[in-house]
Structure formats: structure tokens, C-alpha cells
Write a protein that binds this DNA or RNA. Sequence first.
DNA 1: GCTGAAAACTCTACATA
DNA 2: TATGTAGAGTTTTCAGC
Lengths: 170, 170
Amino acid sequence: MAKELRRAPGPPERPAPSGLDDLDRRLVALLAEDARAANATLAAELGVAPSTCLTRLRSLRERGVLRGFHADVDLARVGLPIQAMVSVRLAVHHRDRVAAFRAAAPGLPGVVAVYHVTGQVDYLLHVAVADPDALRDFVVDHVLSRPEVAHAETSLIFEHVRGTAVGPPG
Amino acid sequence: MAKELRRAPGPPERPAPSGLDDLDRRLVALLAEDARAANATLAAELGVAPSTCLTRLRSLRERGVLRGFHADVDLARVGLPIQAMVSVRLAVHHRDRVAAFRAAAPGLPGVVAVYHVTGQVDYLLHVAVADPDALRDFVVDHVLSRPEVAHAETSLIFEHVRGTAVGPPG
DNA sequence: GCTGAAAACTCTACATA
DNA sequence: TATGTAGAGTTTTCAGC
């Protein structure tokens, strides 16, 4: 679907392929690591004036490089000690049905993340629930009950840790 | 009256099962949605004094309920347009070997997240890379080359969206 | 544990180089 | 585009409840 072939006289949107300079990249890395860092702190670490830092931050938000800032919550400590990855295979691959599932999935109760993937399964649902019963209820009531779902398989998640892809200064 | 009878003779750690009151939970939800919200704003939304809000926030951090705050970065716009889920099955399930993989995985180049799961595979590695070559190199050089890895299978990720498990006020 | 007030600090707009 | 300045606003400590 993504036709980025000739980007030339086309859309008025910013085509900027990776129009990020070194300062932008370092700011993104700092915020990936600590999204609550004060602007003054960020500026000091980057070696620029706070006002410059602010301008950059705004620009990164506007360009969609930074989509938001979220707390990393220990789900077990907020009453959701059981996490699972539910692999979902859809039956009918009609656009509408896929779209319906895609639209509904992130809002299903307990869903932490949704991955639309290639391969044996179509979706991976990362869910967090209070107890085993809630897990079964989730799969039965919200996944298997959907007409477009052909099959679902549940794996428990022992551990889920963040990687370093964008986090650390690297 | 919640009976906190004797929490005593056990371990010195906080056993607090879900020792969060309503205020704590609402604060966690607000920060899950916008981790950069000012303390004064959070306090106003919670209907408490800023100093109270600050105390709660600190306490949640200290208790490990809030593990950190991270920017949600559009990986495609920072030069990592290809994402994949690499399913890894380990060969030898010796504690040491599993531990070695577990320790190394989050630091491998391009790793966004690591899931240790039950079922057909042992680990799911969510990775983001610059191009298909980098994906192949990742799998060959950093996964298949490890002696404890028996098998790896790669699925492309078309889309990855956050769920609503902890995000919204609910 | 919550609050209010006060000092220190930070954010942010704007004019300028 | 980056910077310095200045007014407004915020953070954070602390005594008192």
C-alpha cells in the first residue's frame, strides 16, 4: 500500500524521510528513557538553550516522531498479575472483517498491546488480567465469540521487558 | 475497616497486595496516558493539592508501581521502518542457558521488547530495524548464532498499537 | 496523610543576532 | 535556527492540622 515511490510533486505533507538531525535524535533518546525529564535538564544534557530544546520537542511532536509519553506501570502491582499473549487467526480475510477486528482489539478489556503480524497467525494480543478466570473470559467472550476469528491460542507471559532499541542514548 | 492485623513476621518487603487506593489508581491512569503532564495539572484533575499529588507520585515510584516514563516514538520516523516479531525456541533448558539468553536479549541491537512466554516458543523478540538486510543480520548474527537457540521464526509486524489496559481512566 | 504558603526554580513567548 | 531575557507559572519543602 505505501507508495513512496516518487515522492516528488505529490502531497503537501512533510515527506522528510528521516529529517532528524543529531540534536533531534539525542532528544528522542533522552525522552524515550525518561519522559518526565524537565525541559531544562534535557537542554543541559544536549548542550543547548532551554528555548531551543523546547522548539525541537514541539517540532518532533508535530511531525509525529513523538506520539506521546506514557508511564511504565507494573501491571502486577495494579491488580493485573497475569499476562498472556493471545495469538489470533482470522477466518475470513475480507478487508472489512479485518478492519473490524483491528478497530476493536485495542479497546478490549485488558489489552495492553496489539500486533498485526504476518505468518501463521494474524494478530497477537498482549493482555493483562486479574486472575485465570478473567483470562478465560477474555478469550471466550471477546476473541472466540467474534465471527471473524477462526482460532485463538493463549500463551502465558512470564516476563516482559523493554529493549534498548530506542531507549538508551545509542 | 481493613484489618491489617499482623503483616509482620514474614519477609521485610512490602507484601501490600494491591495497596493502592482510588487516588493512586487514578494518578497511575493519568500518567499512563500522559507521562509529561505537569504535577499541578495532575493535582487539579485529581482534586487534591499539588503537594499531595507529588507525595503520591513519589510513593508510587518507590513502591515500584511506576517503573519509569517513556516517550512513544514512531520508529519508522527515526529510521527503523521495519518491525518484526522473532519467535525463539531454546534447545537446552538449563537454567544457566535460559538466564544467559534472558539477560542478553533486551540489549541486542534493535530489540524493542522481550516476552518470555509459555508454549511452542520460549521467547518473542519485538525488533525494529532499518531495512530487510538488518533484519536478516539480526536473526543470523544475534539469535541463530547463540548455542542455546534451537529455532527462530520471523514474522513481520504490519502494525503495533497500544491497548487500553492501563491507559484510559478506566 | 493532607493542606496551604513561600522560596526556588522552570517554562515559554518574544525580540534579537 | 539558536539564543537570552523576563513574566508567568510550577515544583517542592515545611510547619501545622
